[in-house]
Design a protein around this nucleic acid. Structure first.
Lengths: 180, 180
DNA sequence: AGCAGGTGGAACAAAAATGTTTCAAGCGGG
DNA sequence: CCCGCTTGAAACATTTTTGTTCCACCTGCT
């Protein structure tokens, strides 16, 4: 019986990595019984909604902490990468359960955060720090995908968690090509 | 009743974007009846295995066509991006259905292609074209994730399909930061 | 020892998904 | 027109999942 934070984390992990898992599989992966899972979260829809709201709040906190709305874009981006795994887990979850996208409240919240991130990149472009020829929406998708990728790479044992922020920073900001 | 290529594509799309869909939902999204879906692919496990083998073959062909094993890495990479959507659909599917990872034949094939891509980046690093301080495995994950991302961005209407290769090339090779 | 609280196993009914068969309807080629 | 082929709707038995209830067990506390 892990504490609540670990429980959220374990449940989110299995739902993200093994979409379509049954309540039994989720419970087992989280190290609790199906009975306790139901007691803690109610039915499946409630579980999904609770978990989604939870990770969206994590995202919002990370965005706030990084200061993506007002602070210097370059520095805000660096701080954002410190919460890479938080964001990665959130993003991975959002597309694992179709039910999420049938809840207007969550759909709106997701769209809002997507816009917020795109606006951040747009601001960085105006500040001359991000390349202006790349659509901000695409930057949001690209960066989001790489946040997920680093999490997967860590879980698969290819990358150490300590290297995450450094690799992300190097790859996202500088690209993979050697500068000529 | 779409032709077989379109059918594969439609089924793969719904399984990738709405993991955990029922056979009914898959069939409806593909524009056919559940009866026909079963007639065409057999049971669910067979469907998953057939589809996975199919997209893996697509990947292999794209890798071959791009010449990632022997040709100049820079040029091979450009050619790889021409098949971005093929690879994107494949990758999206691979992690949508847990059953895939319980079939040794598919697990081996996936691992092999992952290794092949990582070796490509390693070769490009030795050729002085990709940054040597980034682990090749991470490059494979990062690029794979961005291939998926561009597909999502296109499906969501944020990016035109014609811009895909250009945006990917600019973002992956050069990064998002303005060169100082 | 006794008690309160949380936990998981078992059992259960209800609901959903699955896989199959049957049959009528549509479509294209002869 | 008629035949062969494919499709999809309906029905179905079966299996799986789901949500709930009950109860025994364990743990921590007094």
């Amino acid at each position: 019986m892990p504490d609540e934070t670990q429980l959220f984390d374990a449940v989110a992990r299995v739902m993200a990595r093994q979409p379509g898992s049954s309540m039994q599989e989720i419970a087992t992966a989280a190290g609790i019984s199906r009975t306790t899972l139901h007691r803690a979260f109610g039915d499946r829809e409630t579980l999904v909604e609770t978990l989604t709201a939870h990770v969206l709040a994590d995202c919002e906190r990370a965005f706030d902490a990084a200061g993506i709305d007002h602070d210097d874009p370059q520095q805000a981006f660096d701080r954002l990468l410190d919460d890479a795994l938080t964001l990665a887990k959130a993003y991975s979850l959002l597309f694992s359960e179709p039910h999420i996208h049938r809840v207007p409240r969550l759909v709106d919240e997701i769209a809002e955060q997507e816009t917020r991130l795109a606006r951040f990149f747009e601001r960085g472009q105006r500040a001359g720090q991000f390349r202006p020829e790349l659509p901000p929406q695409w930057l949001a998708y690209s960066v989001g995908a790489q946040l997920e990728a680093i999490w997967w790479a860590i879980e698969d044992g290819h990358v150490g968690a300590r290297d995450a922020a450094r690799l992300l920073r190097a790859t996202i900001l500088g690209g993979i090509a050697v500068r000529s």
